[in-house]
C-alpha cells in the first residue's frame, strides 16, 4: 500500500497540542480514479492515552461538494491511535488527468477521567487524489448523438433451474420415504411381510369392525388375530402357549393380559359354543384395538 502521508506538526501554543502527537491521512492509491469510483481514506490520529474520537464531531455522510460525496465514516481505536476510515465517491467528469483537493475538517478528541471531560480539537488536513478521464476528449463523430451513449441493456432473466432441480430431488426423496413407510406399515406392495403379521390382522379387523356386526363376523375377526399370532411365531399358538410366545417376543409383553383375554374369548367362542357370551366379554372393537396396539409394538420392535 502506497502511503500518501501528511504529517501535521500541531501548533505548540494550544493546550490541545500536547495531547495530540500526529495526524496522518493515507489512501490505497492517490491517483487513477474515474467518476463514480469509491475513494478510501484512513485518518490516523496519534494522541495521549484515553483520548477517543467524539462521535458528534465526526463528519456526517452526504454530499460535500458538487463532485464529491462522503459515503461512510467508521472509527477504530488501536492503542494510542484513533483511526477514522472514510469512504468518498467522486463524480468529477475529468477531461484530463488532474489532482483534486478534498477539504479538511475538524474533529474533537475527548478523554473522560471521571472528574471531568478533557477535549482536544484536531484539524484533519486537506488531501488530494488524482482523477482520470474515462473517454477521449474528442470521440469519433456520430450522426445520431444518442449513439454516444452506452445502451440500456436488458433485464436479467431469473434462473428457475436450481428450484426445479431441488423440487425434483425432494420429490424423489419423498417417494423413497413413502416406500419406506409402506414397508414399515406393510402397505401395498409389501402386504405379505412375515415380520408384519399384526399389520395384516389389524387391517382385516378394521375392515370387519366397519361392516355389519354378527356372529360370523366376530368369528372371522378372532381368526384374523389368531393368524397374526401364529404367523408372528411361525407355529400354531394356543392359549397354553401364551407364556412361551411372550418369552420369545418380549415386545408384546405389555399386551399379555389383553392377549390372555383374547384366548379366553376364543376358547369360549369356538369350543364353548358361546359366541354371544364371548362377544359380550371381549367385543370386536376391543379386538380391533388390541390388533392396532400389537401392530404398533411390532413396528417399534423391528428397528
Amino acid at each position: 500500500m502506497r502511503r500518501l502521508w501528511l504529517l501535521l506538526a500541531l501548533l505548540a501554543a494550544t493546550p490541545a497540542a500536547a495531547q495530540v502527537h500526529a495526524i496522518e491521512v493515507r489512501t490505497p492509491r492517490p491517483f487513477g480514479y474515474f467518476l463514480g469510483d469509491l475513494v478510501q481514506a484512513t485518518v490516523e490520529i496519534e494522541a495521549e492515552d484515553g483520548f477517543v474520537l467524539q462521535s458528534a464531531s465526526l463528519p456526517r455522510p452526504g454530499p460535500l461538494t458538487y463532485w464529491l460525496d462522503l459515503r461512510a465514516v467508521e472509527t477504530e481505536t488501536a492503542g494510542p491511535r484513533q483511526r477514522l476510515r472514510l469512504t468518498y465517491q467522486t463524480f468529477y467528469a475529468a477531461l484530463d488527468a488532474r489532482s483534486l483537493e478534498v477539504p479538511g475538517f475538524p474533529v474533537t478528541l475527548v478523554r473522560d477521567d471521571g472528574r471531568g471531560a478533557t477535549s482536544a480539537p484536531v484539524q484533519v488536513p486537506a488531501w488530494s487524489f488524482g482523477v482520470s478521464p474515462l473517454r477521449e476528449v474528442q470521440p469519433p463523430r456520430r450522426d445520431d448523438p444518442a449513439d454516444y451513449l452506452r445502451p440500456d441493456g436488458s433485464a436479467p432473466r431469473l434462473d428457475p433451474a436450481p428450484a426445479r432441480n431441488a423440487a425434483l430431488g425432494l420429490a424423489v426423496l419423498a417417494l423413497a420415504s413413502l416406500l419406506w413407510l409402506a414397508l414399515d406399515r406393510a402397505w401395498w406392495p409389501f402386504r405379505q411381510r412375515r415380520t408384519r403379521a399384526f399389520a395384516l390382522a389389524q387391517r382385516q379387523l378394521a375392515a370387519l369392525a366397519r361392516g355389519p356386526e354378527g356372529e360370523a363376523v366376530y368369528r372371522d375377526g378372532l381368526l384374523a388375530l389368531h393368524r397374526g399370532v401364529d404367523q408372528m411365531d411361525g407355529r400354531r399358538v394356543l392359549a397354553d402357549d401364551l407364556p412361551g410366545f411372550l418369552a420369545r417376543h418380549p415386545a408384546f409383553r405389555p399386551h399379555g393380559p389383553e392377549l390372555a383375554r383374547f384366548f379366553a374369548a376364543s376358547r369360549l367362542a369356538f369350543f364353548g359354543g358361546g359366541v354371544a357370551a364371548a362377544r359380550a366379554q371381549w367385543p370386536l372393537a376391543r379386538a380391533a384395538a388390541t390388533a392396532r396396539g400389537l401392530a404398533a409394538a411390532e413396528r417399534e420392535a423391528a428397528s
Binding site: P160, A163, R164, A171, A174
Partner: peptide
C-alpha cells in the same frame, strides 16, 4: 419432503 418439493416447484 412433499411440502418442500411443492414449495420448490412453486418457486420454479
Amino acid at each position: 419432503l412433499l411440502a418442500g418439493a411443492a414449495a420448490c416447484g412453486l418457486s420454479a
